[in-house]
């Protein structure tokens, strides 16, 4: 089945998914801009707090999500051309990327909590916890969506159409997009 992406109502992933993506990006975008705005009144505190984060963790997590996004894009491609086995395998790799992200994020959170760097520690960490936890929730929801997609692909692949597959993929890529905005602001610029 070929998709008419040039039609206004059928962007890859569907119009409803893209409305959600825009709403999420605007929400996170405004929160990130608010964080930068607050940093102007406490630049030293934001700088010192940023140095308490592990930039290596943030960079590795970015690589996990980007690579996972690549596997997702390839999985969609192979599903469309009817190569279900390869699509399933790539979907597994996509989920592995998500699991690795969540695993490393858990280690990072554990270290912060052990060090007493909780949400009430200061303004920077209030933003850090709110933004990254909200993002983690999206990743967990994305993992559930991909898990259901994988289950259906394994059991009854013929019941899945391109739009369903693309919508699930678009949600996963959205997690990637949000992280690409969060990572530089939280881990690098202050």
């Amino acid at each position: 089945m070929s998709n008419n992406y040039k039609n206004f109502y059928y962007p890859p992933g569907g119009i409803l998914m893209w409305i959600i993506i825009f709403l999420e990006l605007i929400t996170f975008g405004m929160a990130i801009i608010a964080m930068i705005y607050y940093s102007k009144s406490e630049p030293a505190l934001f700088h010192q707090s940023r140095l308490m984060l592990n930039t290596i963790y943030g960079t590795i997590n970015t690589l996990f999500l980007i690579t996972s996004g690549y596997f997702m894009a390839e999985s969609v491609h192979h599903f469309k051309v009817g190569n279900i086995q390869k699509s399933k395998w790539l979907l597994q790799l996509t989920m592995l990327g998500g699991l690795l992200f969540l695993g490393l994020k858990s280690i990072e959170y554990y270290e912060k909590l052990e060090g007493g760097l909780t949400i009430s520690f200061n303004t920077f960490f209030s933003f850090y916890w709110l933004l990254t936890l909200f993002h983690v929730i999206h990743v967990i929801v994305g993992m559930v969506i991909l898990g259901v997609l994988y289950y259906n692909l394994k059991k009854k692949a013929q019941n899945i159409n391109n739009e369903d597959f693309e919508a699930s993929a678009a949600f996963w890529h959205m997690c990637d997009l949000i992280w690409l905005l969060l990572f530089p602001v939280i881990y690098l610029i202050f």
């Binding site: 039609n7 890859p12 894009a73 997009l177």
Partner: peptide
């Protein structure tokens, strides 16, 4: 961001509005 949205998400194939 551009790379992910236009290539992985294939938005380059979508309507100009998007």
């Amino acid at each position: 961001f551009y790379g992910v949205v236009f290539y992985f998400m294939e938005l380059r194939k979508a309507h100009s509005f998007w």
